[in-house]
Amino acid sequence: MKTPITQTVTLILLALGVITLGWGCKAASIATDIAAESGVISEEERDSANRTIEAFRKSAEEMTEEEEYYIGRAVAADIISRYGVVQNRSVTEYLNRVGKAVSLTSSRPEIYNDYHFAILDSDEINAFAAPGGFVFITRGMLKLVPNEEALSMVLGHEIAHVANRHGLEAINKNRLLEAFAVLGNEAGKTLDREEVVKLTKLYEGAVGDIVKTLIESGYSRSQEKDADHQGCEFAANLGYEAGAMLEFLGAMDKAAAGGGGMFETHPPAQDRIATLRPIVKSLGDRGTESSARTTRFQKAMASL
């Protein structure tokens, strides 16, 4: 039977372990070593605790910015191979300016290789974001967007998926653990040919998991709700009127009869409106008026 003092020490060590997860695992391992040496936990319990700490470290959350970027590049290559990219410099430039501006007021403005935006050559109504900041919007979706305000919210929604690393969360966890096992923890270790081949297969699987989620199964309702909320917030922080997203979702609702695309992977527009309405209200009337925004939006879209 453990004494109150022992329980207190155990609690402190446990807290230390949890706290230090965000700072790397070494300190957590030290904490469990001390606990084992002082007899608070057995050697067996110590090893088990360390394995758990290792497992936590090897989650999608702990992937490096560089790894996220390289997974995102392969997801982007897959999406582009399916749809093709519209080669229209003026619209692409405008899209990148709006997107980049919104990213600056997001929760994660700086990512490994910045945010990039492209138009997919499809009449389907859809938008995707690959990890690492590759954001796509279809020509069909762009044609439905009525103004720069709504465009800023649509791009804000996709930026929120990137900022929250939702794409990486779609990767099968066992696949990820297997990949980290191949990599090990030694900085100086060089991968041999067999390991590179194995890692490439796991990479291919991870890319497949994300593409399947983006195109077929969709993110969870909670992830979509967060993206809607944050997308409006990022755009409103910049000075756009958040109410524009409600109007746009109304237009989406009417277009939903056509089916396909975003309507297969996102909650119904009416549900999104109902969830967003109080959020838009809480964001208040931060928006600013500008006829220049209307003019530049119309000018850019005229060539689409």
Partner: peptide, 22 residues
Amino acid sequence: GASTDEITLAGKGFTKEVEDEY
């Protein structure tokens, strides 16, 4: 040289080398 768990092993993992192979 470096081998502790606190180090983020950039340049290792899903990187250019794996992308090239893929």
